[in-house]
Amino acid sequence: MGKDIRQVYTDTLLELAQTDDTICVLESDLMMATGTKAFKEAYPDRFFDVGVAEANMVGIASGLSSEGKIPFAASFGTFASRRTFDQFFLSANYARLNVKLVGTDPGITAQFNGGTHMPFEDVGMMRLIPDLVIIEPCDTVSCAALVRLAAKHQGSVYIRLHRKGSQTLYDERQQFELGRGQVLRDGTDVTLIASGFVMVPEALKAADLLKEEGIRAAVLDMHTIKPLDEELVLSFAQKTGAVVTCENHQVTGGLGGAVAELLGEQLPTLMGRIGSQDKFGQVGTLDYLLEAYQLRAEDIAEKARRILAKNS
């Protein structure tokens, strides 16, 4: 079993902190959940737990950033987005500061914490913040690489971080760039554009299902949702003529919304969006929730078939 994604996050921060004394970590009483205790132990002077006060955490992080620090501040995605939106918008972003805000437990991975803790809207909210970079790693390799890139990026970043569980889809040597999606599988009939720990593997499985039927599906890992890799989306939309977005998030505002906006303006293409269809969260196992919100590979494959039927 590989490392939990959250451990990759903490290990990467520990690695960065060795050579950069401006890296610091903030928590709002979720250190044990985010898994940053090792950072606190290694760098007690650069670790700040503000208590259960997420808005204050983002303000403190912004103040630290204005004094030259690079703060990584984390909370569950619901609180990181909804509860700190004005603070992150104004204190961090309008002020052009350098705050890395981490929202954990994306979408259905909140599981038994249920509807109060299930962020289906964080990416949509964050996309409204000018110039903000939004990333969602899908595995251990991309998580380490993207956290390093986030630290290096001059400006604020929202990191949608899967917490528990491990998976490795990329080769250790894979290079990443912010704003450049990865082509996981080439194809000519339909493009599946996915993001995150849950949906990238589902998209790959869907491509396998479609392959059995002779449908060649391309799969893109859109790890940076903002700025969207427009060139890649347009070239695959052109090539395949059909697009399905796959996100563990509302279909409005996030990845599906971003792709629809781009295609609508520049290259009208038949598309479908897999994701929560204007629904609140609920408690349940991952399998149950995948089915309840129709996020499974079967749902993606079915959406692709329907679009292809319309196209023909």
Partner: peptide
């Protein structure tokens, strides 16, 4: 920058800490 009330308090504390 300030303008959304309350935010300056956290900003000032963060700056003082830094």
């Amino acid at each position: 920058g300030t303008g959304s009330l309350g935010q300056g308090a956290s900003l000032a504390a963060g700056m003082a800490l830094g």
